[in-house]
């Protein structure tokens, strides 16, 4: 009788271990992304651009930063309405604008070669939202209310740092 009793508990233990395993794997990226998004939002608030200094050993907000890129970023929150994202594309260097959902998925990316107008004008909105698009703007549906927008520009040698920094600061992120 005693053995049968423990057998039941052992079976429950196996179930608990399996559920804890699956939940951890599922929760981990969401928790890490949430921390990163909130850290960014602490700097300037949600839906506000941040222009961090070029990464060095003091850059500890996001793992594995590249010291060869200039980043601009924005923690977005489309829960209370669409967010307009605009950026100017620098000449003759790799540049991209990418968006990441709350589960870490890279749901949107555009690079300098794909942009012909020299600038991008995007409206990010929760899926199913009715949006009055400003002329020339493109609608992007966000798979989650919160996430991160990130621009990258290769700082090819330090001689262009000032120029690329100026272009980077024309990246804006604000409620529509």
């Amino acid at each position: 009788m005693r053995g049968a009793g423990w057998g039941r508990w052992l079976l429950l233990a196996v179930v608990v271990a399996a559920v804890a395993h699956v939940l951890t794997v599922w929760l981990l990226p969401r928790a890490v992304m949430r921390v990163a998004t909130n850290r960014l939002a602490e700097l300037a608030g949600f839906n506000h651009a941040v222009y961090p200094p070029r990464a060095d050993e003091r850059a500890r907000a996001i793992v594995r930063p590249s010291p060869d890129l200039l980043y601009a970023s924005c923690a977005f929150d489309v829960a209370s309405g669409p967010v307009r994202i605009r950026a100017v594309v620098p000449q003759d260097t790799y540049w991209s604008l990418s968006m990441f959902a709350a589960n870490t998925d890279n749901f949107f990316v555009v690079n300098d070669r794909a942009v012909t107008a020299g600038a991008v004008d995007l409206v990010l909105a929760a899926s199913g939202t009715k949006v009055d698009l400003p002329p020339g703007a493109t609608l992007v549906e966000a798979p989650s209310a919160r996430g991160i927008v990130l621009t990258r520009a290769v700082v090819a040698g330090t001689d262009r740092l000032a120029e690329l920094d100026e272009v980077r600061r024309r990246f804006t992120c604000a409620p529509l």
């Binding site: 794997v25 599922w26 981990l28 990226p29 890490v32 992304m33 990163a36 996001i62 793992v63 594995r64 991209s96 990418s98 990441f100 589960n103 870490t104 998925d105 890279n106 749901f107 990316v109 690079n111 991160i148 990130l150």
Partner: peptide, 25 residues
């Protein structure tokens, strides 16, 4: 970086390469 990432890879990237771009980029 792709939405085709399985749960383990997604979690692994979150720990070691958050905000990574997809392979085409």
């Amino acid at each position: 970086g792709s939405s085709g990432a399985g749960p383990y890879l997604r979690a692994g990237v979150a720990l070691g390469g958050l905000l990574a771009l997809n392979a085409g980029e």
